[in-house]
Each structure stands twice: as C-alpha cells, then as structure tokens.
C-alpha cells in the first residue's frame, strides 16, 4: 500500500501516481492504482481510460458493483489496473470501513496498491493515507509546496493507522517534481538541498520540469511511457530506486552548454 500525496494541489500527484504504477507494472509487478479524488476525477484521463469507466470506487464501497466490474485493465501495460473515482459523489462517501474492506481485497490480488490522494488534508486525503505502508510525498521546489508537504508528513506520522497502532512508521519518500536546475541555480527556486534540509526525508527522485508531462497527460499516456523524454526517464529511475536499485540522481545540475549553444545564445 503506497500513497502518493502532497498537501498542495497541482504539484504532480496524479502524474506521479500514473507513472509510478505504470513503472511497477512494466517491471512485472501486479499493480493497481486507485483514484481517491472523489468528485474531481482525473487519474482516468491521465491514464487514458476515461471512456471505459462504468463503475467506480464508490460503487464498490456501497456494494453496487464488485471489484472486478470496477477495475479497468490497462491496454498498454500488462499487470496494470485502474480503479477510478466517482465524479458525481463527494468525499464523504469514503467510509473507513469501506475503504479498508476494498484495500484488503486488492492486497490479496495485487503486489502493489497505489493510492492517488486528493489535495488538501480533508477526508479524501486522510482516507488515502490512513492505511498506507509507504508514502511518496510530491513536492515542488517552492516554499508553499514544501510547507504543505511538511504538514502531510506530520499527519502521516500522527494520524495514519501505523501511527495510531504504534507500528513501524510509514516509510516516507520524497519526489521533487517540476524541478528546473537552472532556476534553482539562479536562486529563483529552492534547490534539491534546500528542500531536503527542510523536510529531512530521503529523496526518491527528481522529476524535471518538462513539456513532455503536459503533452502526455493531454494525450492520456503516463509520461513514463514516453521513452526518451526527460521526465519519463526520471520516473523510470524513480521506480527502479523504489525497487531497491542505487542510481545517481539525474536532472539536478545545470547542464553544461555545448560550444554551438554558447555561440548561438551568446552567453
């Protein structure tokens, strides 16, 4: 059970959830990704399966459909399933008992259950993180995003089931998205080191600010499938690191300009 969370909206949670789940499935693990953003359904769009949604998460919680009816199998990657959110309900429909029952059922059939949390710290976000074993905390290199992530880390440490029951704490990973090394270098943005210093958790991956993210989400393709794109490569590394590989972080330093670039930009 892995939650992808952030506190703040628009930082790249759903993009990260989609690519992370796709990456795990590509590497042979049976994976399901659940959209907890009831009322503001987005994951299906980014995964490109919005036209195949019949039943949703809330239908299953209310026993109006069973899991097999609601799960959508991804057409591109084997072992990958999507459980979409309901667009017509609100987050009050997420009951703790209902969520727990479905997560337990999914755990029996899948090696990884990825929960895409909504923004905020209200019911939807709390339900998404409550049962988590690990958390990917998505942050942008700006102060408000970092502060909201700090808040979420506090909630993970105090209000998750593991915290309430005194188990081993939820394992926290930092995903720094929309990172632009040049702007961090100039001081327009917080640097990787600044963010790590404030949040004090281990860095799982740095995703560069990239036009590929916008293009692929509009096309309904998780960016990790865009081979050769910088963001896609970064997500690939991130998944490998999550699975235990040691890889150097890319896209964190300012690339040296080539001779031609220097000539033409006249720096």
């Amino acid at each position: 059970m892995i939650v992808v969370t952030s506190g703040k909206g628009g930082v790249g949670k759903t993009t990260t959830s989609a690519s992370f789940a796709t990456g795990l499935a590509q590497r042979g693990y049976r994976t399901v990704v659940i959209d907890f953003d009831v009322g503001l359904r987005n994951l299906d769009l980014i995964m490109g399966c919005e036209r195949r949604v019949v039943y949703d998460f809330i239908n299953v919680i209310n026993n109006e459909a069973n899991l097999n009816q609601a799960l959508i199998r991804d057409k591109r990657v084997e072992n990958l399933y999507i459980l979409p959110a309901s667009q017509t309900r609100d987050k009050e429909a997420l009951t703790k008992d209902g969520v727990e029952r479905i997560l337990n059922e999914l755990r029996q059939n899948f090696e990884y259950v990825v929960c895409d949390s909504p923004a905020g710290i209200e019911r939807g976000a709390l339900m998404a993180l409550y049962f988590a074993d690990e958390a990917l905390v998505v942050t942008n290199p700006e102060v408000s995003s970092v502060r909201d992530s700090d808040r979420i880390l506090g909630i993970l440490a105090s209000r998750s089931r593991r915290a309430e029951q005194g188990d081993i704490p939820v394992k926290e990973h930092l995903v720094l998205a929309r990172y632009a090394p040049e702007r961090a270098h100039r001081g327009d943005m917080l640097s990787v080191d600044d963010v790590l210093e404030i949040l004090g958790i281990s860095l799982l991956g740095v995703i560069p600010e990239s036009p590929a993210v916008l293009q692929s989400s509009n096309a309904g393709v998780p960016v990790i499938l865009e081979e050769g794109s910088d963001a896609g490569t970064a997500y690939g590394d991130l998944v490998d690191r999550f699975l235990g590989k040691t890889l150097p972080h890319r896209f964190v330093t300012v690339p040296k300009k080539g001779l031609l670039q220097r000539l033409f930009r006249g720096s």
Binding site: I121, D150, R151, G154, G200
Partner: peptide, 8 residues
Amino acid sequence: SHPVRSGQ
C-alpha cells in the same frame, strides 16, 4: 525524538 512538522 521526531521532527515537529507544520501544523503540529
């Protein structure tokens, strides 16, 4: 023995 996070 843990950091005190925003909001706590």
